[in-house]
Simulated assay, not measured.
Amino acid sequence: MNIYKTAEELRSFVTEERKQGHRIAFVPTMGALHEGHLSLVRRALKENDCCIVSVFVNPTQFNNPRDLETYPRTLDADSRLLASIGTTALFAPEVETIYPEPDTRVFHVGAVAEVMEGKYRPGHFNGVMQVVSRLFDLVQPDCAYFGEKDFQQIAVLRAMAREIKSPVEIIACPIVREEDGLARSSRNTLLSEEGRAQAPNIYRILSESRTWSKELSPKAVIERATQLLDAIPTLRVEYFEIVDADTLQPITRWEDSPKPHGCITVYCGEVRLIDNIAYY
């Protein structure tokens, strides 16, 4: 596996791949890799000639300095994992490579970026769009793979791609879960022993809520799920919304959307976990 740290090294590699007529896939990550990330890379390698993975903890998408400080950084272990599955190249830039100057761009992608995470983490999605658009410029991929755990992020990035007229195809891949249902996340390594034991209740209750949706309104489903989760030690719901899967706007009746989707954020102790589920 090739490892590049500078834009010049990466550009040279991409140029050679293009000369050979290769289709280039890209998997952007913030490191602390787990099976969820690796599943994206495996699919990208299967469907394309080569796959470039980036590991970069992006400072502009953290609105909580403490969260940035504690985000796990495990580049050596990440490199070994990526090499073990045949990743073509790893791009591990320094902040100065991604942002040689402060990025002052402000993206305007509409309502998909203003609800849920956009509401509770102001500035977060603008930072995500800054780094992803910058990485797209550097990597010049044909397609990029993202996990559906970050359901809203995928909608935001597709809107961004339309705004900047990016030709990169954004491909969404299913959530990878632990055996007990907990969505794989780099943040899971920060959970306490008690928190790790309780965190699977998030998906358990989301799954149960599919049954309730046959009799209860979206509002009633939200209220019941929130009440049950908040009653569990260490868990506290920040928000749970049922929205249209395409527009991400809240619905009040199931018939308001052909694709109702539930998106939730729960604090497990001090660790913020997200998950989502389809009701269609």
Score class of each variant (00 low, 15 high):
residue 58 N to E: 04
residue 58 N to G: 00
residue 58 N to L: 06
residue 58 N to K: 05
residue 60 T to W: 06
residue 60 T to S: 13
residue 61 Q to I: 02
residue 61 Q to Y: 12
residue 61 Q to H: 13
residue 62 F to Q: 09
residue 62 F to Y: 13
residue 63 N to M: 07
residue 63 N to W: 10
residue 64 N to F: 02
residue 64 N to P: 02
residue 64 N to S: 13
residue 65 P to D: 05
residue 66 R to H: 12
residue 68 L to S: 10
residue 69 E to K: 14
residue 69 E to V: 01
residue 71 Y to L: 03
residue 71 Y to V: 06
residue 72 P to G: 02
residue 72 P to S: 10
residue 72 P to N: 10
residue 73 R to W: 03
residue 75 L to K: 05
residue 75 L to Q: 11
residue 75 L to P: 15
residue 75 L to E: 04
residue 77 A to K: 15
residue 78 D to Q: 10
residue 81 L to P: 03
residue 81 L to H: 08
residue 81 L to Q: 15
residue 82 L to F: 03
residue 83 A to I: 01
residue 84 S to G: 04
residue 84 S to C: 07
residue 85 I to T: 05
residue 85 I to S: 05
residue 87 T to Q: 03
residue 87 T to N: 07
residue 89 A to Q: 01
residue 89 A to C: 11
residue 89 A to R: 04
residue 91 F to I: 04
residue 91 F to G: 00
residue 93 P to Q: 01
residue 94 E to H: 14
residue 95 V to T: 15
residue 95 V to C: 09
residue 96 E to L: 02
residue 97 T to E: 15
residue 98 I to W: 06
residue 99 Y to A: 06
residue 100 P to E: 11
residue 101 E to L: 07
residue 102 P to Y: 12
residue 102 P to M: 07
residue 102 P to L: 13
residue 102 P to E: 06
residue 102 P to T: 12
residue 102 P to S: 12
residue 103 D to A: 12
residue 105 R to E: 09
residue 105 R to P: 04
residue 105 R to H: 09
residue 107 F to Y: 15
residue 107 F to C: 09
residue 108 H to V: 09
residue 108 H to F: 13
residue 108 H to K: 15
residue 109 V to E: 01
residue 109 V to A: 09
residue 109 V to M: 12
residue 110 G to K: 12
residue 110 G to D: 06
residue 111 A to I: 14
residue 112 V to P: 05
residue 112 V to M: 11
residue 113 A to Q: 07
residue 114 E to G: 00
residue 114 E to R: 13
residue 114 E to K: 12
residue 115 V to S: 08
residue 115 V to I: 09
residue 116 M to C: 06
residue 116 M to W: 13
residue 117 E to R: 07
residue 118 G to C: 07
residue 120 Y to H: 14
residue 122 P to A: 11
residue 122 P to S: 08
residue 123 G to L: 13
residue 124 H to N: 10
residue 124 H to E: 12
residue 126 N to H: 10
residue 127 G to P: 02
residue 127 G to V: 10
residue 128 V to W: 01
residue 129 M to G: 09
residue 129 M to K: 03
residue 130 Q to F: 00
residue 131 V to N: 03
residue 131 V to G: 05
residue 133 S to A: 15
residue 133 S to V: 06
residue 133 S to P: 02
residue 133 S to L: 00
residue 134 R to I: 01
residue 134 R to S: 08
residue 134 R to L: 05
residue 135 L to S: 00
residue 135 L to W: 00
residue 137 D to H: 11
residue 141 P to D: 11
residue 141 P to C: 11
residue 143 C to N: 11
residue 143 C to S: 15
residue 143 C to F: 00
residue 144 A to L: 13
residue 144 A to R: 07
residue 144 A to S: 15
residue 146 F to C: 00
residue 146 F to K: 01
residue 147 G to Q: 01
residue 147 G to M: 00
residue 147 G to E: 01
residue 147 G to H: 03
residue 147 G to R: 02
residue 148 E to N: 06
residue 148 E to W: 11
residue 149 K to Y: 08
residue 150 D to L: 10
residue 152 Q to G: 05
residue 153 Q to N: 10
residue 154 I to Q: 08
residue 155 A to M: 14
residue 155 A to D: 05
residue 156 V to G: 06
residue 157 L to R: 00
residue 158 R to C: 04
